[in-house]
Amino acid sequence: MTTTMVQALNTALRDAMRADESVVVFGEDVGVLGGVFRVTDSLADEFGADRCFDTPLAESGITGFAIGMAMRGFRPVIEMQFDSFAYPAFEQVASHVAKLRNRTRGALELPMVIRIPYGGGIGGVEHHSDSSESHYAHLPGLKVVTPATVEDAYSLLRSSIDDPDPVVFMEPKKLYWSKSDTALPVRAPGLGAARIARPGGDVTFVAYGPSVPVALDAAEAATEQGLDIEVIDLRSLVPLDDAAIEASVNRTGRCVVISEAHSFAGIAAELVARVQQRCFYSLQAPVLRVAGLDIPYPPPLYEHLYLPSVDRVLDVVDQLEWDELPNRAV
């Protein structure tokens, strides 16, 4: 049976709610409607309006309310309707969600998940396509998780709901309708373990969420040049699997980071800095990145110009100080 990422997320929520009565799902339009992307489809039917419910249209209130419920024994999974609509909740996230465990020396923990559909590539009008992961990854106390496959959508969401720390769970909208034939449930290692999406020996691509398929396509295209490229899917930005990246780059000696978010001060910048620091003596070329442009995310007619593309990735691969390309395929 074929499953989409949306269905996998829905199944993860359903299985988590069946496994633990304290799991509650709420947000805007998540009840009868099932969420604007249908991720919460029919949960209200199965579990009742006490377990899956609509709230007033107020993201800060939703987040603060979830904090209070988590303080009294619930495991809230809240939905922010779109990346940009999560900004009103930012103060709650930055000042409270991220810090409450620390402020109370562990007396109060917040096992809550904030689900955020993010990124572009779906022809959304303004305010519907931001890649806001850097904002959250910059806040100590939060975990930031993002799946790139249908299987990981299920297993990472289950792990996030089970986690004792608050998790910002970022769902790549572009991949919502991606498909897999793997039967659910599947469980991967817990949060913080990257995945080798494609093994290879010449270059390491580091990607996450919506950029993983781009990285895989570029790696496939590069075989025409005789290049055997490894693709690492981070799965989790916080905690970050430095060891997996380091092991790969120490083998390949070359690294390109691919991220859809704005380039400046983004996750890609952090990854490049870490790789050059940790793998300096293995590197055959500067660590480069292919990231989003430093302009407000553009409207549908322009977004192909913004997004990291296979061609843009391959152009950067050409800059990796090759004496001569392996050209094994020829």
Binding site: G61, M69, R72, G73, F74, E91, S95
Partner: peptide
Amino acid sequence: PLGTHLPHAVGLAYAARRR
């Protein structure tokens, strides 16, 4: 951060009533 604790009080009180 002023006023930001108020939704917590609401969520906690609601959760307690639920329990």
